[in-house]
Simulated scan of single mutants.
Amino acid sequence: MRLLHTSDWHIGRTFHGQDLLGDQEFVLSALADLAAENEVDVVVIAGDLYDRAIPSAEAVQVATRALDRLRRTGATIVASSGNHDSAPRLGAFSAFLAAGGLHLRTSVGEVGEPIMLADRAGPVAVYALPYLEPELARIPLGVPGRPGHQAVMAAAMDLVRADLATRSAGTRSVVAAHAFVVGGTAGGSERSIAVGGVESVTADVFDGIDYVALGHLHGAQKIGERMRYSGSPLPYAFSEAGHHKGAWLIDLADDGAVTDRWLELPVVRPLSLVTGSMQELLDGYPDLTGHYLSVVLTDAVRPVEPMRRLRERFPHALTVSWEPPARVVDAATDHEVAGLTDEDVLAEFLLQCRGSSASPSEQTLLDRSLAADRLLEAAA
């Protein structure tokens, strides 16, 4: 059986104020093309279809079109809710949708109920576990006390293995889970799931499963031989600028053996981090005009209206910060300050704080302020 493992779509997410719905629709359409080209049997989406519990109408429309494109490839779709999704909203009409080949798992009470599929070699049980918030999952899973993620995931997997034991001999198994598994590396744009205890779970909690499709971490990676994160289809932080986004193509052999192939998705708009003075940026870097940019300016004096000026040349510049070159200035001692005029103290202060003296217009303002202050003192 051939699976396409994806996760963390985060439809509706913005990136430093930039709307990404167009980017997301483009890349999810490309995902459907990969499913069609590779004759995928099952698409597994391991949580976080949406970026927020109450997605906008536009986000829902993008998700609907993406799922429709995937279903039109002939693949069965199995999706579970993540920590960003509202499980009740995502799971609405799930019984009706299953009849059309879209299987949604959003309820803790369903963790031991697989979606049963089959190929020429026999049955495959797919267990799609929704994100398990410990405080909410502990009662339906029968976990006492105030458990953490490890305890509730272990309880859920006990139910999975108990159900699997009732299936016919040779039944292969797939688990989709949204969790931070020990050994994984965060990409930088994930939301913490630490509420309710230690946020991570150990890999051995998934023992006995042929393939584990993980979601939550946004960088693609392997955790052992039978466990992988697909990562997000788009980068959602500048720390992910070097990531290669895509999905795992998983072939599940007749005996449960796993072979994989990484399928890259197209880059909608590259992410770049660039450092330099305002003039250096405005005069150079012609290859970055189409990139999402994070800019660090190194001018000795803070440029005026930096974002407006940058966007005239780089329309997709998203963040700008100012880090002037380090300047070593010896701080004046109390004795030295006592011998300085007010004008000298202000000049020393500016030099230490920003590494430059006042501009002519700034000096005019300072002179006026000092003169007004002296008049007030004289009147008192």
Rank of each mutant, 00 (worst) to 15 (best):
V124D: 01
A125N: 12
Y127P: 01
Y127G: 05
A128H: 13
L129D: 09
L136P: 00
L136G: 02
A137C: 09
R138I: 00
R138N: 00
I139K: 08
L141R: 06
G142I: 11
V143W: 07
P144L: 07
R146T: 12
P147E: 00
G148R: 02
G148A: 09
H149E: 06
A151P: 00
A156G: 04
M157C: 09
L159W: 12
R161I: 14
A162P: 00
D163G: 13
D163K: 11
D163I: 07
D163R: 14
D163H: 15
L164H: 15
L164M: 10
A165N: 05
T166D: 07
S168M: 08
A169V: 09
G170T: 09
V174G: 10
V174D: 11
V174H: 10
H178E: 01
H178W: 04
A179M: 10
F180H: 15
V181G: 02
G183D: 10
T185P: 01
A186T: 09
A186R: 08
G187L: 03
G187A: 13
R191M: 00
R191T: 05
S192I: 11
I193L: 01
V195H: 11
V195I: 14
G196V: 03
S200M: 09
V201T: 12
V201M: 10
A203R: 12
D204E: 15
V205Y: 03
V205K: 12
